[in-house]
């Protein structure tokens, strides 16, 4: 420790070494991070302004206690985020139609959110359609 200090002391005589290396490192890493964040956001600012477009894909259909459960993914292919996205699933069988709905709080741009719907009729026994029915701007 003492030797380190003396080495420091000797070097400190030269004005070029007055700023400690750790300060350069911290400021350097900070500048890089700031530059990176600014670049990503700036790129989005210049390129991203398409309103939400949400597509829903069904992943699995499985029987659960008291009915059937489907798991889906809602993908927002556009730049802007959508809030309160309503997802409606319709099962049509010979016996009639059954509609289940769920609301996703947010689906950010170019992102997906996962969710599920419950039905009493077996979706595999008829036709299943799941789609986003609406959203509000956040």
């Amino acid at each position: 420790m003492t030797q380190d200090h003396q080495a420091d002391e000797n070097r400190a005589g030269k004005p070029a070494q007055q700023v400690p290396w750790l300060e350069w490192l911290a400021a350097g890493i900070g500048s890089l991070l700031v530059l990176g964040v600014f670049t990503v956001i700036g790129w989005q600012a210049l390129n991203g302004s398409t309103p939400p477009a949400i597509t829903v894909t069904v992943d699995t259909v499985a029987p659960v206690e008291g009915g059937y459960r489907i798991l889906f993914r809602a993908l927002n292919r556009a730049d802007e985020a959508a809030a309160q996205v309503e997802i409606a699933g319709t099962v049509s069988t010979d016996g009639g139609e059954e509609v289940s709905r769920v609301v996703l709080d947010y689906v950010p741009g170019h992102s997906e959110r996962h969710g599920g719907l419950f039905f009493t009729r077996d979706p595999r026994g008829g036709s299943l359609a799941v789609r986003a029915t609406g959203f509000v701007a956040p």
Binding site: E23, W24, A26, A27, I29, G30, S31, L32, L33, V34
Partner: peptide, 10 residues
């Protein structure tokens, strides 16, 4: 300025 960038980095 260096301090500001360091603080932002932190």
């Amino acid at each position: 300025a260096m301090d500001a960038f360091a603080a932002f980095g932190v």
